[in-house]
Simulated assay, not measured.
Amino acid sequence: MSNPASFRDQSNWADGFYELAIEVGSTDDARIQEVLGAVWSAAGVQGCFAFRDREPEEQEPVSCSAASLAEYGHLRGQVRLPTGRPAVCGCVAIRGGDESSDWLDFYVPVGALSKAGIAYWDGGSFFRSAVMDDWLAAVGARAFRRTPFSLAVIGFEVSGCTDAATLAGRLPESRGIGYLLPLDGVLHYGAAND
């Protein structure tokens, strides 16, 4: 049986990312650092590594930091999925520059999710899993308690699909993805419903 937690098995990293994409609300490295630490802890990620072509025991860990994200592009680890199976996971920062805020994307690749037996709905063009949505929403809520953020969206490659300014404090009624939207300091979860 294939192992969804194996770094060396490149099929684990295939088919795109199922994400908790967080709009940090700033372009400050310190904010990326705070949110990264909160998410890594909230998800219970084991390890922090730069390379996906060698197993964790075959490489030195790197710091779970904005500096490491800048140097390596992605940080990788292993996480226990809601089914109890371990799987590879990662994180990437999408820097907005002067015009927009930064995003931090925590992800589990679809290849690993498939091998871990996560049931999903394929609407013809994307992966969607209510189990993963709820788990990622719980990770986001725990991270928010440690360090608030502007918005988080949950789903298949969802980073930047909207932003807090566009939503203007209102969850969409029809949602193809999940939303974590803070209102007056309280985080509200709008699950995907269409």
Rank of each mutant, 00 (worst) to 15 (best):
S68I: 12
P82K: 09
F144D: 09
G140S: 05
E71Y: 06
A112L: 04
D133V: 08
C89I: 02
S100T: 14
V139T: 09
A141Q: 15
R146P: 07
Q78R: 15
S101H: 08
S129Q: 08
A141I: 09
V79I: 09
G111M: 00
Q78C: 12
Y107N: 09
D122K: 11
C91I: 14
S129K: 10
C91V: 15
G140R: 03
E99K: 13
F144H: 03
G123K: 12
G97R: 08
L104Q: 10
R128S: 13
F126N: 12
R145E: 14
V108S: 01
V92G: 09
A141T: 13
E99C: 09
R95H: 01
F106V: 03
F144Y: 15
A116N: 00
V139L: 11
W121K: 14
D102P: 10
L136M: 15
R146D: 13
A137G: 00
W135M: 04
V88K: 04
H74F: 15
V110N: 04
G96E: 06
A87S: 14
F144I: 08
R76V: 04
R95I: 08
V88E: 03
A143K: 11
G97N: 12
A112C: 04
A137S: 01
S100I: 11
A130D: 09
T83Y: 07
A116K: 00
G117Q: 10
S125V: 11
